[in-house]
Simulated assay, not measured.
Amino acid sequence: MIEKFCHECGTKLTKKELENEGIVPFCPKCEAFRFPMYNVAVSMIVINKQTNKILLIKQYGKDYYVLVAGYVNRTEQLEHAVAREIKEETGMTVSSIKFNRTQFYEPSDVLMCNFTAFVENDVEFCPNGEIDAYRWFTYDEVRKNIRQNSLAAYFLNAYLDGWQNAIGR
């Protein structure tokens, strides 16, 4: 999504050539180029190391399962956001984190960064008010239960396909 107005002064942006960048939105009042702005979020494939199961959650009155996810705060490292969001939403402490991939989600102007986050067990599990329901799924069950044709399913399936290729399934 291209910004239409300057985020500093509110003036309508024009388009102007910028060397090595091409056509970029430009504020004639501030005399500054204004690159598109968007939000950054993290989504996590949460794996219980003790049971080798994956956590899916339902939120906001929706009747489908998705991955735990949340926005990254300004100046926050992605890995910190992963651990923070899991702690806030589930009460669990992350023991290790692995980056998977990213995908821009145009409907909400969000760069979604996906990780696998491992927890030792679910002893600390205490969902907050953002979680309506949850369930731990086996690797075989989880594909069938995540919201189909969603960004969460894309991340999960890519992770599982890599896992299955690694063990020769």
Rank of each mutant, 00 (worst) to 15 (best):
A117M: 05
W136P: 00
I131D: 02
G10R: 15
N149K: 11
T90I: 08
C27R: 01
E76I: 05
Y65N: 03
N165W: 12
K49D: 10
K29H: 13
F115T: 10
E8Y: 15
C113T: 08
V42Q: 04
I45L: 10
D109Q: 15
Q77T: 04
L55A: 02
P28N: 15
G22S: 08
A153E: 04
G61E: 03
F155Q: 06
T93Q: 03
R143Q: 12
F155A: 09
F155H: 12
F118Y: 15
N114K: 05
R135S: 08
V123G: 00
P127A: 11
V42E: 01
N145C: 03
V68G: 00
N20A: 08
Y60L: 14
D109W: 12
I47Q: 02
D122W: 03
A69H: 06
A41G: 15
N114P: 02
N20E: 12
L55C: 03
Y134M: 04
M37A: 11
V40P: 00
Y38K: 11
K144W: 10
E76D: 01
Y64T: 02
L55E: 00
L111M: 14
W163V: 15
S43T: 11
F115Q: 05
K16N: 08
M44V: 06
L13Q: 04
F137I: 06
I47R: 04
S108G: 10
F104T: 10
F155C: 09
N39F: 15
N100R: 12
F137E: 00
Y139I: 02
Q148V: 10
Q164W: 12
S43D: 12
D140H: 14
V110L: 08
F118E: 10
T14K: 15
S150I: 05
I86G: 06
F115I: 12
G61K: 07
I57E: 01
A153D: 01
L78Q: 11
R135M: 05
I131R: 08
I131C: 04
I54P: 00
A81H: 02
F125L: 15
C27M: 08
M44F: 01
N73K: 15
A117T: 04
G129F: 13
L156S: 03
V110R: 08
V46W: 06
I23Q: 11
I167R: 14
G162N: 13
G91W: 06
T14C: 01
M1H: 13
G129I: 14
R74L: 14
A153C: 05
V46E: 00
C126M: 12
V94M: 06
K144H: 14
E85S: 07
E76K: 09
P36R: 12
F99P: 02
I131L: 09
S95M: 14
V94L: 01
T14V: 14
E89W: 04
V123C: 00
N128H: 13
M37C: 00
V66N: 01
Q164T: 01
R135V: 06
K12Q: 09
D63K: 14
F125K: 11
K144L: 10
M37H: 13
S108Q: 14
